[in-house]
Amino acid sequence: MVGNHTQVTWFRLLELTEQEEFKGILFVLFLLIHSVTVMGNLGMITLIHADPQLHTPMYFFLSVLSFTDSLFSTVNTPRLLESFLISRQSISFAGYMVQMALMSLHGTAECLLLAVMAYDRFTAICHPLVYHTIMSQCLCVLLVVTCYTVSVANSALLTGCIFKLPYCGPNVINHYFCDIPCAPSCLFSYAYILMTTCRMRSLQAQSKALSTCASHLTIICLFYSTITFMYAQPSSHNSMEHDKGMSVFYTVVIPMLNPLIYSLRNKDVKYALKRRCLCKLSS
């Protein structure tokens, strides 16, 4: 008991939509998206580790990002799918805390990995002669370990602070998953990259420099524009409805788009995929 009120032991999560006629279609759509997300990201990881041509810092970070995207999508998509089949979903206090902690962990890791990948592209374009010296295997592993260490610490701190408070009010949450806004920026590296590229005298050199970071810049723009739109707008009832739609985009759709963007816009990945297909056909 807290004062004269009973401590909340469960929460009710509202559905993405209350229109019954759309739930079956949405269930099939999001099941397909989640399947493509998992297969695409795991396929990207397998391709990177199987092809020696992709054993570079850039693709090492991409494989870690694909792993994070798979987990990020898996944390809340199954419950989203369940909400289309079962109305009036509820989640225990402990379950809510675990889901929020996992969303915070993987969301923070995603942001930090994008920042690390921006630093990698910054080093490759602005310091090409010492790139391989700076981005050694030891440093790459250390950066990834640091990303996840900071993510775990951030998740534990935020979740601990939030759930240390007593919950005795309304237990209805106008969302379909447990969320914490968190988005560190990594756009300063790209501002410097663009400045360095503009100083290059050769158009061919400019084109080559931009092509090496085009895929990553596309992903950053999609991810941060979505998060900025969600958390920068004033809070209201209508904004909460929009937030649910935007949350679907950055937690479900973007993890599916990441491997597609890198495979379609990246020559190295396309060549590696062709080599693997030809090897299988020849064998």
Rank of each mutant, 00 (worst) to 15 (best):
H5C: 02
L14C: 15
T17R: 09
Q19K: 13
E20T: 02
E21K: 04
G24D: 12
L26A: 10
L32H: 08
G43V: 06
M44V: 04
I45Q: 02
A50P: 07
P52I: 00
P52W: 05
P52M: 08
L54F: 08
L54I: 06
T56E: 13
T56M: 06
P57W: 05
F60W: 02
F61I: 03
F61W: 15
F67Y: 15
L71A: 14
F72T: 06
V75E: 06
N76H: 07
P78L: 02
P78W: 00
L85C: 06
I86D: 12
Q89E: 14
F93N: 14
G95V: 01
G95R: 06
V98C: 15
Q99A: 02
Q99D: 11
M100C: 03
M103R: 12
G107D: 15
E110V: 11
L114A: 07
V116H: 12
C126A: 06
P128S: 02
P128I: 00
L129W: 06
V130S: 03
T133N: 13
T133V: 14
S136M: 11
L139C: 04
V141C: 03
L143D: 06
V150Y: 10
V152Q: 00
A153I: 13
A153L: 14
N154D: 01
L157N: 13
I162P: 02
I162Y: 13
L165I: 07
C168R: 09
C168V: 09
G169E: 14
N171M: 06
C186M: 10
F188T: 15
I193W: 09
C198M: 14
R199I: 05
Q206D: 01
K208H: 07
L210T: 08
T212R: 01
T212N: 01
S215M: 12
C221K: 03
F223A: 01
Y224I: 04
S225Q: 02
A232N: 15
Q233L: 08
S239C: 05
M240Q: 14
H242D: 13
M246L: 12
S247W: 10
I254D: 03
P259C: 03
P259I: 01
R265L: 10
D268W: 02
D268Y: 04
V269W: 05
L273D: 00
R276S: 00
C279P: 01
